[in-house]
């Protein structure tokens, strides 16, 4: 009985550990360059720096089936995980539209497979367009210059 309980707990621990080990971290340090380079190929943006006039930008490419990919955004000194996460299917293709919420978007694309290998790709996408909300956001008022 005691042996059965120990075995059961061991199996549960190993399973949970494997799940924990496979889950994407919430934060990635900029210095971490990954431990492999063959999991995904990003076709768009074609280079690590790109610019667009559209708020919605499609990140596309292909990768090994089963690889999980997530987008991180630079916030302060670290990359923080966004809601964009997907798993590559049998076709190997991915094409994810993301919303650019600021002028300069410094992103990290992390791809991880079930064996623990992970790959990082840094992307810098600059939003060049202007919308009414941007114009309003950029208006500044100097209170000292308002006549009374």
């Amino acid at each position: 009985m005691k042996l059965t309980r120990v075995l059961l707990l061991s199996v549960l621990f190993i399973t949970l550990f494997a799940v924990t080990a496979g889950a994407m971290p919430d934060v990635v340090w900029p210095g971490d360059g990954g431990n492999t380079s063959g999991l995904i190929v990003i076709t768009k943006p074609p280079k690590d720096r790109s610019a667009t006039f559209d708020r919605s930008y499609v990140i596309s490419g292909y990768g090994k089936e089963g690889t999980v990919v997530a987008i991180y955004k630079l916030s302060g000194d670290v990359y923080v995980k966004t809601n964009y996460e997907w798993q590559i299917g049998a076709s190997t293709y991915f094409a994810i539209p993301i919303e650019l919420d600021s002028k300069k978007n410094i992103l990290l694309c992390r791809a991880e497979d079930s064996s623990g290998q992970y790959q990082h790709a840094k992307l810098e996408i600059t939003y060049l367009g202007s919308s009414l909300s941007d114009v309003v956001r950029n208006i500044t008022v100097d209170a000292t210059s308002i006549p009374y």
């Binding site: 995904i40 190929v41 076709t43 768009k44 499609v58 490419g61 049998a90 293709y93 094409a95």
Partner: peptide, 22 residues
């Protein structure tokens, strides 16, 4: 809507081990 060439999904892969069935 985007054309495959705009996403560069039509290009032949460089030296990569990723095999594409489609």
């Amino acid at each position: 809507r985007v054309f495959a060439f705009e996403l560069r999904l039509d290009e032949n892969p460089p030296n990569t081990s990723i095999q594409r069935p489609v």
